[in-house]
Design a binder for these strands. Sequence first.
DNA 1: CCGCAAGCTGAATCGTTAA
DNA 2: ATTAACGATTCAGCTTGCG
Lengths: 347, 347
Amino acid sequence: MGDCIAEMARLPDKSVDMIFADPPYNLQLGGDLIRPEGGKVDACDDDWDKFDSLATYDDFTREWLAEARRILKDDGTIWVIGSYHNIYRVGSLLQDADFWILNDIVWRKSNPMPNFRGTRFTNAHETLLWCAKDEKARYTFNYRAMKALNDDLQMRSDWVLPICSGGERVKDEWGEKAHPTQKPEALLYRILLACTKPGDVVLDPFFGTGTTGAVARRLGRKWIGIERERAYVKVATARIEATLPLDESAMTVMADKRSAPRVAFGLLVESGLVPAGATLTDSKRRWFATVRADGSIASDMHSGSIHKVGAALQGAPSCNGWTFWHLDDATGLTELDVLRQRHLAAL
Amino acid sequence: MGDCIAEMARLPDKSVDMIFADPPYNLQLGGDLIRPEGGKVDACDDDWDKFDSLATYDDFTREWLAEARRILKDDGTIWVIGSYHNIYRVGSLLQDADFWILNDIVWRKSNPMPNFRGTRFTNAHETLLWCAKDEKARYTFNYRAMKALNDDLQMRSDWVLPICSGGERVKDEWGEKAHPTQKPEALLYRILLACTKPGDVVLDPFFGTGTTGAVARRLGRKWIGIERERAYVKVATARIEATLPLDESAMTVMADKRSAPRVAFGLLVESGLVPAGATLTDSKRRWFATVRADGSIASDMHSGSIHKVGAALQGAPSCNGWTFWHLDDATGLTELDVLRQRHLAAL
DNA sequence: CCGCAAGCTGAATCGTTAA
DNA sequence: ATTAACGATTCAGCTTGCG
């Protein structure tokens, strides 16, 4: 327990094999954000995430990165996670400190919080940077393990994982979430499995509820956690003590949740498979509609998605636009569902 | 044709609505990369991608960003695409230049080049930054069009798109790919559809084979392209001339409700669409109110505008009375918003 | 005990106009 | 420059409660 820079300063040079760091993001949130149904978003407004300026944040980052670099073995690697608020500062400062970026990894959240006001794209991912100490370092990368984890295909730089919720979310003594930004164990599982060997020492300078420690213990890695807040240290300690070493059944929980890719009709328009301006009709040419640039369609009376317009024209409560509508061009009628299959095959 | 900084310097202040920039990535490649079957990877080793040091790259980036900022309208936005080699420099310098990041977007490539050596994760994405000139800017974001393009779900920050290949890839006179890093039209299509209006001026300071110009022309946007290499200018010019604009009906996208003309509820009462004395209720018939002659409504406890009374009854901070209240008559429940649409259509 | 509906929640830089 | 009023806006997954 203590300040991460002061505590790292007490560790010897080149003594840890891997560092995983989840530093403050410096979110710079404004006033309250209200949900459409009236509820308030429980924002991360803790003091530990507040910095006076970008310069202050940069100074803090430079300092802890310098200690991290000193402690890290020459062939060790460092992982840092962040969002667009801070990751560009962190990435630049990592490069300035002569770290060598091996990959940037995108954590694509399967269930992110929506953008309630319709003002931006849903902020649906976070970014992780994986770096060696220099270009020539002989770092650990368990290529085969990653390939096995990904159905015998190379593991890519984008990882789809759900956010940490439900039973995995650590609760405090009042039953509330113990920490505003707890990371999912599946994320740490993949990182530790990819970049460490059993018995390696993993350091997490922003330990929080101890996800890194719990997964390290489960995978037979040694760990060091540094955390400033007494409340977090307390829940982390209890959590890790309750963690059992991995058994085979638990491994399946960690695997990717895979499902058939959903195709939006708009993607066919973007890719040119169904050009904007094209005419759609049903199999008996009773109704017609025109495709618009954004993938919505318009008949003389209605506009909206292929499903909504199909339903409205027929006076039906619902309609599967994929099988109802056909592209009407020089080659004749082609069911949209056939074009969708073609699009999926091309991917 | 010319150097991007020199040419931008000739453009007036605050004169373009949007900037899309695909600057050199400063890839810092080592020796040749050989594929498992023996072929050599055709790497991007052009002179224009080489910089002496990170500091040189930063200086170059600072310079063109300063010109870009000067040229951009106050409510305009800038997009920059990059990979892990350069995007952390660019993101940091954007923030240093007081740009305000709205989103970082991940272009997840459906068909990336594998990692032939098995030494890292497959580098399967690139990153785009979307920024306004400052926090308060009132930028263009066609929320409804993006939602339509994504099957009526909010468009997320991770976009799955194939790389540019096949017939879309521009060839030179010898049949070789004309440019090593041509971007797919689908990427520009989504960006221009999301963040510009028809007739807007889009600037691309690193024009290459003119993808931005081709898509801008197709979507009825004006464009300015700056490119240093004569060979690229030549293929870009031919390509754009061969691109046909969409006609206006195809270019139409789902309208944003915010841009629709305001209708006072009282107008519906005046016109008889909602008769004074009528009963309003919510979709679940939990609350009721009576319409008064002046367009105010009254429940047993509260009276005022449709918004105020809706908020008060629910104990919510605010309420959209148009979607909350329904006219309750012989035909059943009709949402006020539907009656508003009917009123607008009748005008 | 099951099935279904309703409710809650997550690292969020989350509005515009006119008086 | 400040304030009030208008009115636009959500996805996936888990939990709780009721029949």
